[in-house]
Amino acid sequence: MWEYTDKVKDHFFNPRNVGDLPGADAVGEVGSIACGDALRIYLKVDDQKRIVDVRFKTFGCGSAIAAASALTEMVKGKTLDEAMQITNQQIADFLGGLPPEKMHCSVMGREALEAAVANYYGLERKHLEEEDEGRIICHCFGVTEGLIRKVVRENNLNSIEEVTNYCKAGGGCQSCHMDIEEIIHEVRQERVETPAKQPAREQRKLTNVERILKIKEILEEEIRPSLQQDGGDIELVDVEGSKVLVAMRGTCASCPSSELTIRWAVEAKLREFVAADLQVVEVKS
């Protein structure tokens, strides 16, 4: 029998915010029956981007239900930005800890939240993964490279066993163990190099959704107003890995120097505020 804390038991026996949410502004869903657990989370968001109501449904074990219940309590009343700052470790901490083998329940909570926020902004699931990182590493549990990288990075994991505990990858036929080993190794390298090179504010690498949200925000607040002053406009079409696809509108669309605008105004700003590797590409309609 698992050693569950009283808080876990409480949230399992009396889960908070269970159910559907008619008229929800966002839905996020992760997991599947095949994998043994799944979580669907519904958000109601006001015009201040504050989560005013939340509901969940879970297929899963005791700690999966408890983690989902805990998450709903944690996000209620927070803005989407604030909610996105919640880490899987914080979900586990909120419950007074989870057995190591059950940490994947907290990760599932975090993933579902991210999916819901992406859904709110009309982004697709594919944006949850970085470029090339949507590749499935563990076929037994359908775990992508991106997720493995993320749990290793955020939770400082050092072994395959830990990775399995946090996202299930490697817990089946074991044929993906070499790949997981390699990812752990790469992230560990990254850990050694990071502290010296990067300034403090960039220590935590943005998740893909966070990055897309940030791109949207910068476009909205820093770039569009000045273009609009000149009767032009820009629209975010898509983000594919580090490629930001935009369409120019209004006077910008026909402006011969739009290429320069993109390079010097848009790309430079995005590189400064979001990520240095971003590349802005114009799509002509």
Binding site: F13, G36, C61, G62, C140, F141, T164, G171, G172
Partner: peptide, 26 residues
């Protein structure tokens, strides 16, 4: 496992072939 936990609360002891109880993930 969720079923077992609720049964346990009623004092009913059973077991499960589910992943979460087998100590493995499958």
């Amino acid at each position: 496992e969720a079923i077992l936990l609720l049964l346990d609360q009623l004092g009913i002891c059973a077991s499960s072939g589910s992943a979460c109880t087998s100590g493995s993930l499958e």
